[in-house]
Design a protein around this nucleic acid. Structure first.
Length: 111
DNA sequence: CGACTGACACTAT
DNA sequence: TATAGTGCCAGTC
């Protein structure tokens, strides 16, 4: 039950650094935490992020800019609503101008 | 200890 | 260009 969650915390730390109106991909986060091949784990961590509302999981999407996890949110289009609230345009569960809104996570040395 | 799962990514056909 | 299959790592059963 995600008690140690050491790996997850790293993911959360990065996701929390995502500025409003910006989004990032699982792979980008995975690399940021040093687990380039663990993109799946990032999503897995997001699943556990439900216990931590400090993690804006709605800003995390797959490489296609698709809101893959929207299905896991409260219900239907909550994730999309949150993104639009940030100023991000979402159409068909997909982020518009995703490439422009894409934000590359960077781990701060002096965390 | 072995096998299955998972909000992905990449390569091959 | 689209679809299918495999690989990856970590966690849980």
């Amino acid at each position: 039950m995600a008690l140690q969650a050491n790996f997850f915390e790293r993911v959360y730390a990065v996701v929390r650094q995502i500025p409003e109106g910006r989004v990032t991909t699982y792979g980008a986060i995975a690399r940021a935490i040093g687990a380039a091949r663990s993109a799946r784990m990032v999503g897995y961590a997001m699943n556990a992020s439900h216990d931590d509302d400090t993690v804006p999981a709605h800003r995390v999407v797959n490489r296609n800019g698709l809101l893959t996890g929207k299905f896991h949110f409260d219900g239907t289009n909550l994730m999309q609503q949150l993104l639009e609230n940030e100023g991000i345009k979402v159409v068909d569960n997909k982020i518009v101008n995703f490439k422009e809104l894409l934000w590359e996570p960077t781990i701060q040395a002096g965390e």
